[in-house]
């Protein structure tokens, strides 16, 4: 079976309206050969999980600047579990204090990218993780 391009959902949960970072990442992943479904700002946990389900994505990337990540992210993870989207790679970025990183990783976020992360680094991380997952399925 032919490899399909990696499909990524980029979403901004919560109420902050600053989506510049999310757009920069979306554009960079496009340039890295990925299909990026961009859903924009003010997404509820339900909307994000539903879009991930319908679009059959490999990756969900969340961008958040408001500080509400510890409130919103568990609800997104719960919604996704409920829809049996356990095999989707979760990554996030934005303004996230260092002390929250461990908790987010525990929650299921494989990659947490703070300010200053290069977009190539994000693309490389996603490609490596998905490569591993696909390899494991094929084996």
């Amino acid at each position: 079976m032919a490899e399909r391009p990696i499909r990524v959902l980029i979403a901004k949960p919560g109420l902050d309206g600053h989506d510049r970072g999310a757009k920069v990442v979306a554009r960079a992943l496009r340039d890295a050969g990925m299909e990026v479904i961009y859903t924009g700002i003010r997404q509820t946990p339900e909307m994000i999980a539903e879009a991930a389900l319908q679009e059959d994505v490999d990756v969900v990337g969340l961008s958040i600047l408001s500080g509400a990540h510890l409130d919103l992210f568990p609800r997104i993870v719960a919604q996704m579990r409920q829809k049996q989207l356990d095999d989707v790679l979760l990554v996030c970025g934005g303004i996230i204090p260092d002390e929250d990183m461990a908790m987010l990783k525990q929650m299921g976020f494989s990659g947490v990218f703070g300010p200053g992360t290069s977009t190539q680094e994000i693309a490389k991380f996603i490609r490596a993780e998905i490569g591993q997952k696909r390899g494991a399925v094929a084996a």
Partner: peptide, 24 residues
């Protein structure tokens, strides 16, 4: 690059949460 930005859902947010709609 072979990549793409798929942005049409952005304008279809009214339909979110309705199980009678499927967007791909």
């Amino acid at each position: 690059s072979g990549g793409a930005i798929l942005g049409d859902r952005l304008r279809m947010q009214d339909l979110a949460g309705d199980s009678g709609v499927f967007i791909r």
